[in-house]
Design a protein around this nucleic acid. Structure first.
Lengths: 219, 219
DNA sequence: ACTATATTGTTGCAAAAACTACAAAAGGTG
DNA sequence: CACCTTTTGTAGTTTTTGCAACAATATAGT
């Protein structure tokens, strides 16, 4: 199994990894772009980690409106343990954005120490813990962005978070403007209008999905 | 130390707990209602678990508008590892809603196995893991609620989640209607108006903070 | 290179929400 | 009980947003 190492396996050698996969009853699946992650909705207590590619969790309502609930990158966690609840009128789908590799394990096996009491098992648990904490962090930021009442504030909140660990004042959106609107849970045209206003006020400068923040004190 | 046991210490005896507190360098703090959790914003890599009481994480913007970002109940986790980011214009505050006990530990000590290699240490890690997973779940639900564009949909989404594990069709809000509006990140008066409409349509029936869902197929 | 498809950019209009303000009811406290 | 504070309930007005529709680019596939 060749793959550039996931954070999940940091500090675990390839030999150990093979053993670990065995004692955790892990299985790896591959999905082509657009394919739905069937294992996600179905089974209980499944924990999946994206090794390669990207997964989008979307909500499609009665009227066909799409909202992006989550964007799971490499090393991201996928689990019905903290999944979105399917409502009657809405359909929630997890699907591969590009070709994606996911490793699934049964949540119950993660903490059961195997007979050999392999020491890398605890390293694995720590890594998994880090990933879940990271997921919480991302979700918290998402809530913070969505908690704003106006589109303008949502955009600025996003930019603010994106600039947190950045030296320059340039944010390149990791998605299309269409997807960005879905991510902010707002209408695309209304968002475009708001970005135009921000540009006209001289607070930002936009070129497609590259946003330069000119007046950082405003965000 | 007398306290009704937190999920965090499930399967760990009181004697073991004392030992664990020691090897994790844990310290417990108490806060009176309204008091701010000073340890929260300050230190790095702190992990806190609410043993008793409740904590509200609020965002106060330039104009003094309050939005509830998070509501941490008993067993909930408090951590700057996945905290909300403080923006220039906004002030983020974690404060005790009622008298609250919190146990803090250094995140770095959690995974370091103590010399005695106490077995309950791994039980503790598993418990902590469950709590963090639970937090992710709550945050995901929050995102799902906030992802709705209209107030009406936000309310219905909330009710839907609240009714998931319920036998009857009654939801009693665990907070005032004022706080509920802050939780949904909408204007209170607009929310009241929307609830009135829902009542008039015969979809729900309200009496203060007790909401009875009459037509479950609508939510 | 051509064609189909997705993305970006823009507008008018209708709908929804925020803001403001006020009154009534409920709850807590000395 | 009387007072103060919070919560609940309501309405008018303004602002923001969503919706629909369309044109102009850009991108990908054959």
């Amino acid at each position: 199994m060749k793959t550039n190492k996931s954070l999940l396996f940091k500090g675990i050698s390839d030999t150990e990894l093979k053993q670990l996969y065995n004692c955790l009853r892990a299985h790896q699946s591959e999905f082509v772009a657009g394919e739905e992650i069937y294992s996600f909705g179905g089974l209980r207590s499944v924990l999946g980690v994206v090794l390669q590619g990207r997964v989008a969790v979307k909500k499609i309502d009665r009227n066909g409106n799409v909202t992006i609930l989550d964007h799971i990158q490499k090393n991201g966690v996928l689990s019905n343990a903290f999944a979105f609840s399917q409502t009657d009128g809405n359909y929630i789908s997890a699907s591969a954005v590009e070709n994606t590799k996911i490793v699934f394990f049964d949540y119950n096996n993660v903490f059961k120490r195997c007979q050999k009491a392999c020491e890398f098992h605890s390293i694995f648990v720590e890594n998994l813990f880090d990933i879940v904490i990271e997921k919480s962090k991302t979700l918290s930021q998402r809530v913070e962005i969505l908690s704003n009442k106006t589109i303008r504030e949502k955009i600025l909140s996003y930019l603010n978070i994106a600039l947190k660990n950045s030296i320059n004042n340039v944010v390149t959106l990791p998605m299309s403007l269409t997807s960005f609107a879905e991510f902010l849970c707002v209408d695309r045209s209304a968002m475009m209008r708001e970005m135009k206003k921000l540009s006209q006020s001289g607070i930002i400068k936009t070129d497609k999905r590259v946003i330069t923040v000119l007046k950082r004190e405003y965000i």
